[in-house]
Write a protein that binds this DNA or RNA. Structure first.
Lengths: 181, 181
DNA sequence: ACAGAATATGAGCGATTATTCGCTTTTGAT
DNA sequence: ATCAAAAGCGAATAATCGCTCATATTCTGT
């Protein structure tokens, strides 16, 4: 009952060539998502656009969903990269200034790759393995909440939890819609 | 070149039995959307859950998208039904009171069928024929805007367009997230 | 009771999709 | 130069999907 060694090695890239393949696949997935939409992103199509065979795709990804997850994660990392600096500064700012910076940051984050962001936010069905992918909102909520705790004396509100919820949700929705429409 | 009469009669229900079939199909679609997600909603599956044959499905709906549109429209009508009254009262209220009523209305609207609402708002890909289905936001935006115009003298803001955008977007996002989590 | 219209059925066709596997090519270490 | 491991290939298989149509059942007016 020996398990097939040929089918197992999903996701293990040690040489440089293979890393390039993985990259090409993720990039192709993103391009298709943006230009043709989620349901046109079939495994065969992705491999074709990436200039790679389907077989190679399945050597590194267990399926289409895994590709999409990779795209989302890559986009989130890129976004954070361009925003991390400003986000650190906020901590030392008074609320008055902080909210303005945060809005600026939110806008900047949405501008990294608006089209991809839109697809991720509006077109990817949040089911199966896709629903587990952490959203921005939650991360932002935590950050904002700890900031408020550190500046509690500047505020009139007592329920920081509620305040965070209201602010993060509003800012997120506003910037999202503003940048996209 | 006679056109096939057998294929045409999509969507025409005169007897009661057929109306029940149509209802069962729409209901089944809604149930699948909520419990299994959009991409599990195949025509075969819908027919099966509805206790109807695929053939009957195609007698009344040209395809899966039409079913989904029906579900959305039915949900929007149901929502409006439970909210129409309060919405009419708002027009006569001063801003101070009006915003509170509007938020109450928004919450009530989201409570009609939260799970279905979520699927419609977050999971249905806005592509193809589905993207033409009018969203709530736009309708609400228009209503709110005309209200503001009627009460311009009570306000300090000049850009009613922007004010509407900010208010509608925020309220929508807040109630949506609040009811769901 | 009967005919024709309306409604329902489901096996099955063609297209598309995901996924596999035997095989070839490339790479890196010796 | 040699060879085993790593990476790559793509025709082939299997599953699923949307959809049709020949046929069967039910309804409705007379």
């Amino acid at each position: 009952m020996a398990r097939r060694p040929l089918t197992k090695p999903r996701k293990a890239a040690s040489q440089e060539r293979s890393r390039a393949t993985v990259d090409a696949l993720v990039e192709a997935t993103a391009r298709i998502l943006v230009k043709e939409g989620f349901d046109k992103a079939s495994t065969n199509r992705i491999a074709e656009v990436a200039g790679v065979s389907v077989g190679s795709l399945y050597q590194y990804f267990p399926g289409k969903e895994a590709l999409v997850v990779s795209v989302i994660e890559r986009h989130q990392q890129e976004t954070m990269q361009t925003v991390r600096g400003e986000l650190a500064e906020v901590l030392a700012q008074p609320v008055e200034k902080a909210v303005r910076t945060l809005i600026a940051v939110a806008v900047k984050a949405h501008r990294v790759d608006p089209k991809l962001h839109r697809v991720i936010a509006e077109q990817i069905p949040r089911v199966g393995k896709l629903e587990k992918v952490g959203t921005f909102s939650h991360e932002n909520y935590m950050l904002f909440r700890t900031y408020l705790e550190g500046h509690r004396d500047e505020l009139r509100v007592t329920d920081l939890e509620l305040a965070s919820f209201v602010c993060v949700t509003s800012i997120e929705a506003l910037t999202h819609n503003a940048v996209l429409h």
